[in-house]
Design a protein around this nucleic acid. Sequence first.
DNA 1: ATTAGTGTTGTAATCGTTTGCGTAAATAAA
DNA 2: TTTATTTACGCAAACGATTACAACACTAAT
Lengths: 334, 334
Amino acid sequence: MSNINIKKLAQELNLSTATVSRALTDNYQISSETKRRVLELAKSLNYEPNPFASNLRNQKSKTIAVIVPEVANHFFSLAINGIEEIARKRDYHVLIYQTHENSETEIAFTLKLLSGRVDGILISTSGETNNKQHLIEASQSIPVVFFDRVYEDIEGVKIITDDYESSYQAVQHLIEAGCKKIAYLLALHNLSTGEKRLNGYLTALKDNGIPFNKNLLVTSTVDSNQNYALIKNLLANNKPDGILSSIEELAFPCYYACRELNLNIPRDIKIISFSNLDCAPLLNPSLTTITQPAFEIGSEAAGILFKIFDKKCFEPNETRVLKSVLIKRESTAV
Amino acid sequence: MSNINIKKLAQELNLSTATVSRALTDNYQISSETKRRVLELAKSLNYEPNPFASNLRNQKSKTIAVIVPEVANHFFSLAINGIEEIARKRDYHVLIYQTHENSETEIAFTLKLLSGRVDGILISTSGETNNKQHLIEASQSIPVVFFDRVYEDIEGVKIITDDYESSYQAVQHLIEAGCKKIAYLLALHNLSTGEKRLNGYLTALKDNGIPFNKNLLVTSTVDSNQNYALIKNLLANNKPDGILSSIEELAFPCYYACRELNLNIPRDIKIISFSNLDCAPLLNPSLTTITQPAFEIGSEAAGILFKIFDKKCFEPNETRVLKSVLIKRESTAV
DNA sequence: ATTAGTGTTGTAATCGTTTGCGTAAATAAA
DNA sequence: TTTATTTACGCAAACGATTACAACACTAAT
């Protein structure tokens, strides 16, 4: 730690700490000659103001927190990338917290963050439970922006994508490709994000006169082995001819299960997944995806947070919807 | 921000702030009855100590910084995952900084961090330039652990993988698969990481009596379009029958270039890449990789940083080498 | 009765910066 | 000459938590 502080600068220059502090912040009260001397010495000694002292005095941290289920996930790491870039422009610091989809962890994080450690929170919540009291408390206490994984019934600024439309469009695409038994891999069902994706699926089926078959609805878990088993079971026993996966994490298991069961994609079964995998075009076969603008979601969320800081007040319940894009590839070819 | 502090607790309970503070830290001087009262009130009011006040007083931040080139990269996001998990166990906070391979940015970050904002730094440096004075200054000032991308000639604790051996082994594998003109996609050449990978390639060639051909050595840039052009050019003009890519980022461009040029992998050309892509097995064809234990590198680095904090003193120049694994797949099939 | 010891609490300084208020000197206005 | 006004700086009190040093009451030992 740098042990050079304002007091030392002041001593060295025969000035008071007040004057040094003011000189460093280019206060009008200080003569330009004094400013020059202070700045020069500060630079030569590599002086950096102690952030904790400043934060304590100013009651702000120049820090934001990002809470996500996993860092090592294409969507979230892209979003973090977007967030970090915006934060950088404002000279803000970014704290990262992973919940691993664990609600308890998420609760502990959010509540701990209300101590003043951060000026605002960006969160994509774990949908594990319906426990959301902590989110309400948090957003009453400091600015919070929810992104992608949101509860619609919590007041707050939200950045989401057009989940319903994307999902609907995906099913439509499968149907046009000839699918008649379309399975849905359900996730995030406690969140409105998941709910909307499901609704898109259901409505698209109805609009096309296809009755809903509950055997074709697979609810995923946090355990990837179990998910794999569920998917294999679905394929083996219910023989769908199309799959819409509502999260990226279930796409690979589908591919593996098809291999194992000797099902040819897209001949025997067509697959679409919500996904930000940049290898989707290179998969065997290439994967049709609903791709969310992950980076933009992150930068948009961060941008709005800063606007809130700037008091360019936002509607407390504003929701911004970005568009996902359906990219058709071989996995749904006719 | 929570506006409840020790003073308010003290007032409420008719105690001094000193007593409250001691009660909260379970100090032996305080009667159990008083402790009970304090803890009870603190809990009911959701009291969280102001971190800046504590940090200022204690001269430590319970925060570490992670500096990486990119968050949205499989290797780094996995490493961050590992770091975050370890930090969590110690109740430390994790700040993230991306350099985007820009040396200036990296310098600015590291120097700013020496103000006491963090207790230690984990860094995987950008290899863009040979500018490393800031790294030396940083590690003289606070504990720094370098991971994966390191300069061998900087004093400090380093977590790396067996780059030389991995690279050597990869070339050996290509040769055994029948390759005679093996190209090398060079990256990180300013770092000892890159140097070792290159040396593994060169030595393996020599040991197999294959003369080095400088036309088969392609030096990558930070511009992905340019990299793609370089690779296509390599394939078109020099017709290698094998490629070793020293970083993950260049694997996809190889696949795309092969498609474009109608080259069949692995018939016309075999490919190996350093990579943590979890879709490697699902690519078309599946990609042979040298996979680094990214998560472990992160957790190991963080673990050592904490040991340094604990003053279980480390050799100041200790280097820990983890093993990568060569996973043979279709892209190098005979 | 005096001293020593124990158990519990309070006073006040400290961490490094920031900032309201005061002040001295210099200049301008009366 | 006296009275404003401006310019440039210092004093000292915050911010909230921690902790050395007292201090008090009370018991035990002498």
